[in-house]
Design a protein around this nucleic acid. Sequence first.
DNA 1: CTTAGGG
DNA 2: CCCTAAG
Length: 678
Amino acid sequence: MGLKKRLDFGFNGFQVPNIPRAPRSARRGPHRKSVKDGQISAFELLASLAGKLLQESESSASSNASEGNLQPAFGIDVKLERQDEHKPLKEECLDQGSSEESVSLGLTSQNINRKGIIKEFPHADSDTVLERTSVITSSDSSAKAGRHAKSVICSSRPTFQKYSGKVEGDSPGIVESCYGNVATGIEVQGDSKPLETGSLKMANPCSSKDPTELHANYPAMLNGDSNVKLSLFRDPIPNASFSRHRNDIELGSRDDDEKFSRCIKPSNRVKVFRPPPRVGGQRIRKLPSSKYWKATPKLREFEHYRYDGGVKPIYHKRKTFYNRERSQRDTLYKRRKLVDRSSVVTSDGGFSGESVSNSPDNGDKTGPAANGVSASVIGHQASFRSEESHVKLKIKSFRVPELVIEVSETETVGSLKRTVMDAVNAILRDGLSVGVLVQGKKMTDDYRTLMQMGISSKDSLDSLDFMLEPSPMQALPSLCSGDPPSLSYETSVLVTRSPGTPVLDSTMSDVLSDLPPITNSGSLAETKHEPVSSHIDILTDKTMLESQALVAIPEMSMEPLAVVPVSQKTKRSELAQRRTRRPFSVSEVEALVTAVEELGTGRWRDVKLRAFENADHRTYVDLKDKWKTLVHTAKISPQQRRGEPVPQELLDRVLAAHSYWCQHQAKQHGKHPALPAF
DNA sequence: CTTAGGG
DNA sequence: CCCTAAG
């Protein structure tokens, strides 16, 4: 009734044509596949480097971890061997001695420039600590899909061996991977000038590969050109207490959306999630030539009300809408899958590692090796300047935990490298926090000063360890109060471990999305596609004071940080990460109602296009669901309604439209769809 | 990919 | 919101 009336008044009987839709088959295109290849991975570089190093230092004393001082900051000991067919993989992992050949290699960030070109070989100076890792290749005839070669990378250190991770799958291999160099260095100094002495960087220009291997992909980590930096800063503070130190750990990517998408997208889809090109704020899209489109000339002229306030011609675009969101979600999905297949995990769910005390010669002094990648603190480097009460220490390296990788025997060396690289990236990017250990005991009191902890003397420094551990804050979304910004997943957010401390987001997207329509409609989308400056290391003093352990959440943090830790803690956030709830605003409801009045209840995609095109976080399913609830809401008494009250007027329209379209649905897609009454 | 519905 | 069967 009400609807009828509207029809009479609205646009003089302007009718929405009964738009025929192209047959699904016509809308569906074959899935193209593409292989984008040719990019060098860091590991390829490592490999080549390894070769040279092998030659150079083969004769030199067999490098031992304990002799790490002679090693580069980042290095792995690569061992290859043919595994006995029946020999359990685990054993292999533990059986370091059975290696037939080994290659030591190491890199520091200085060795390789961003383009992956080796600039200089690491010197065996006393500044570096070697991390040993072994790679064991074996064949496993019991593998389901034929023979598999297993490459196990694990630390040669005993403590490492309790952790095992694995990348497996029938067709493992990294579709797209990144290359990069990894080097870490953390230094805390008493200088009055904040000093960044080390950084862990990862440059991952992604390179896609075998299309069939997408599951071995680690979307989260595959930000092209990502940067991971670990650094500790210190502010000039008179009384030199650690609590005042500014510790920044930055793990993030600086990608723009394009790069990001390029990296995370499984390569069996050519689609590139690039923001639709725009002109004058409008995305440009080729109009399909289907009848569907041709049948809507009028509508094209028609300007529709959008919840976002934008008045724009409709039916100007189509599939691009969900791309961004989809890509994000796909990523999540893929990663879930990945995890489900036990891709790369550490057995204890942590970034297993060993905590090495700075005492160069006591390997047994390892503390809580079970909890994370640990850092080596170089004792002699840690000097204590008593007069200034400053504690100076240098973390030479963080150990890469054990990784177990399984790939097909037919896998290329390159893909193996990428697999490994991805595994490493996964660990490094997966949200880490730093733990401080004193004599093997984890220090959880972030407020106490070093002096109070009695770790200001050189002796005590010897027992000071750092370790990387899975971030307890991986459920980033929950940190974003209220309505998390739609951008947060591409934003680097620094948070502290202390509950209640401020969370700083580098974008104002949330604000934007809730701004009045006009601001929102065009600009938001635009904004979103800008390379978000993700390296925000703004931390309030308060934050600093409250925590020393900062967790850097990379762009993907909105999504579960998958792949590596499969511990209980992280698992939940990884697997279930629901989309953030975004209650519909009244304006959105109005837009929805209007659109449905026009289009009916069976064309949610069109509704989406018409009224929520710029609301990337609203999928047509969302709209459908919302309509469902609206109908329900309209039927119940106002007292039973919850949430932001929807104007009765709108609910009336909902009811009217609902009944109207229900009727017409019965009549085979009503011939003259209703019209909105603006 | 879209729809339609149940969870 | 999520998940899925269907188309």
